[in-house]
């Protein structure tokens, strides 16, 4: 029997995603509605985590952890001298890399538009009517209406 690895979205990826539904002024951070999630052990690399900290929105990460009930000992703020704080980095690693959302939705904080997470991959495609003028250039081609909730 072949075992298929479950595909998943990490909170590290979620931290970088923004909703660009037409008319939305601030589509970040996306809320997360979880139907299925798991915790998976991933090798801890303190240098990688340390380098990643400045490229993250820590508040969004903390809120995501709260909503998934995985806060544990995650600090609500980035601590001073975090590069040398192994406990801080380990908790950051756990929340960023080991929490995996398999099924659920990312929800635009302003419009409520739900983007499905299918097999662990967020589908951020917009329908034709949702494509706005503001924000980065994007295609207006329509897609399945199934994704519109």
């Amino acid at each position: 029997m072949r075992v298929t690895a479950l595909r998943r979205m990490k909170l590290l990826t979620h931290n970088m995603l923004t909703s660009h539904v037409k008319g939305v002024k601030n589509g970040y951070p996306l809320k997360i509605e979880v139907n299925e999630m798991k915790i998976r052990e991933v090798d801890f690399n303190p240098e990688f985590i340390s380098r990643m900290i400045p490229r993250l929105e820590w508040k969004a990460l903390y809120e995501a952890a709260q909503s998934l009930d995985v806060v544990g000992n995650l600090s609500p703020e980035v601590v001073k001298d975090y590069e040398n704080d192994e406990d801080f980095l380990k908790e950051a690693h756990r929340v960023l890399m080991e929490v995996e959302v398999i099924k659920g939705f990312l929800i635009c904080p302003e419009s409520g538009r739900k983007f499905p997470i299918e097999n662990g991959i967020p589908n951020m495609l917009l329908n034709e009517g949702e494509v706005g003028d503001a924000g980065p250039s994007q295609s207006g081609t329509s897609q399945d209406d199934d994704s519109m909730q």
Partner: peptide, 9 residues
């Protein structure tokens, strides 16, 4: 991520 070009990032 399924998305159009750099849109969501």
């Amino acid at each position: 991520v399924t998305s159009d070009l750099l849109n969501s990032f």
